[in-house]
Design a protein around this nucleic acid. Sequence first.
DNA 1: AGAGTAGTTGAACAGTTGCTCAACTATCGC
DNA 2: GCGATAGTTGAGCAACTGTTCAACTACTCT
Lengths: 117, 117
Amino acid sequence: MAKQPICDCDVIHKELVNDTQNKMKSEEDYLKLAGLFKMFDDKTRVKILHALEQNEMCVCDLAVLLGVTKSAVSHQLKALRLANLVKYRREAQIVYYSLADEHVKEILDIGFNHLYE
Amino acid sequence: MAKQPICDCDVIHKELVNDTQNKMKSEEDYLKLAGLFKMFDDKTRVKILHALEQNEMCVCDLAVLLGVTKSAVSHQLKALRLANLVKYRREAQIVYYSLADEHVKEILDIGFNHLYE
DNA sequence: AGAGTAGTTGAACAGTTGCTCAACTATCGC
DNA sequence: GCGATAGTTGAGCAACTGTTCAACTACTCT
């Protein structure tokens, strides 16, 4: 019932905390933001995204390119689809995937940029 | 010994795959990139980063602000420190944390931007 | 030196995640 | 319809991750 004690310190900078509090976004926004970056936190997924930035490709192309199974690629593509980061079109039995919009490229670019200082 | 069969498809788009292959970065780059975005994939961590974008603060401030324990905050700050995303300065017993550089703000901004379409 | 507060750390636990496997759907060509 | 290929899906498993807890360090003040 009673709240758990969260911080056992006396001197907190009340004004700083209040000021920051006012500038913070909603809980939901942070959840969504974390959810977005979660799509870029895995080696296989960033590879898929970066590959699709170069060319539209089918699941098998990606599997061969990355050296993983079709199933693994398909699972990741599903996650990326649900996050609206990739789109696809079907042509006969083949499903071609590509990036959903420019934001993806921007995020990748800013990331690479940070790595190369 | 023998390689595991990775893809059981006949028709792959060889040219597309080769072209993409040439444009891909190194394995290590993708690992680093995923490692960078991993720092933004958790609600608590993005909150910490966004809070520090507003004001330099100590561990207790962050704990109170986010409603989590000092320990939890400290663990996350350590990860962020190791990733060179935050810096700190000690003043008596108090350790003040702030963002390491503008890149962090850029990444957060582009993320929020994507959420708000 | 001793008490008190800020912060860090490592082990442990619960929850999550990415891959594999096997079974499934969808579409094509005969 | 039938067989073959592209792709999807769910269960299960091993590896990883975030939090908590308790013990620790670092600094201050008397």
